[in-house]
């Protein structure tokens, strides 16, 4: 059930997350964008906790805020050249307008679809047991194949990333 406190928490988290994601795409300085993105990750983690998926929420904070966002900040700081610090992210007015128009259109369609779908109105099923032990057991039993596949996928991504960062001569690009 949605209590008042939960609703207020949802509203605050929603505003913070939306504002942070907007900032991540709209701000001029890449460092600010990265920080805004980290805040957005926090907001999403908050949603997970609010929905009763505490483990997922904490993992989200740990991995995305603790590792991914920090990595993004490092990359921005290390690769930023002194002469091109400020001029990124400047786009024309019309493309911004077109982008917002498309986003609003998609949002409108989704909102209408959600509000008119009968299956949303039915009672939510009971929360499944989502203890850390249960998740761990699932990962090595019923969901073993997806786990292994993600391992292979990350290997390919790693190879691709290293190749992408290499110069033609075979040295790593600074």
């Amino acid at each position: 059930m949605i209590t008042d406190a939960a609703f207020i928490a949802f509203a605050v988290l929603g505003i913070v997350t939306l504002g942070a994601t907007l900032g991540a795409v709209a701000m001029r300085d890449p460092v600010h964008c990265g920080l805004a993105l980290a805040l957005a990750f926090c907001g999403v983690g908050g949603f997970y906790i609010l929905l009763g998926a505490e483990f997922l929420g904490f993992i989200q904070l740990l991995v995305y805020v603790g590792a991914v966002a920090v990595l993004i900040m490092f990359v921005i700081l290390l690769t930023r050249r002194p002469d091109s610090g400020q001029d990124t992210n400047s786009r024309g007015f019309w493309s911004a307008l077109a982008g917002s128009g498309v986003a609003l259109g998609v949002f409108a369609v989704l909102a209408v679809a959600i509000s008119r779908s009968p299956s949303i109105q039915t009672a939510t099923p009971a929360d499944p047991e989502a203890s850390i032990a249960a998740i761990g057991r699932m990962l090595v039993s019923s969901h073993l194949l997806p786990l292994k596949m993600i391992g292979v996928l990350l290997t390919v991504a790693l190879i691709g990333g290293v190749l992408g960062a290499m110069q033609e001569g075979g040295k790593l690009e600074r």
């Binding site: 997806p146 596949m149 993600i150 292979v152 996928l153 390919v156 691709g160 190749l163 290499m166």
Partner: peptide, 30 residues
């Protein structure tokens, strides 16, 4: 893996594995 599955999770990860490999291959001529 994509061809040999009838399950959405494996389907999606398989498509991503294919996709990422192909992105790397396409960009190989540096």
């Amino acid at each position: 893996l994509v061809v040999g599955t009838e399950e959405l999770l494996v389907l999606f990860i398989g498509l991503e594995l294919t996709g990422i490999s192909l992105y790397v291959l396409v960009g190989f001529a540096r």
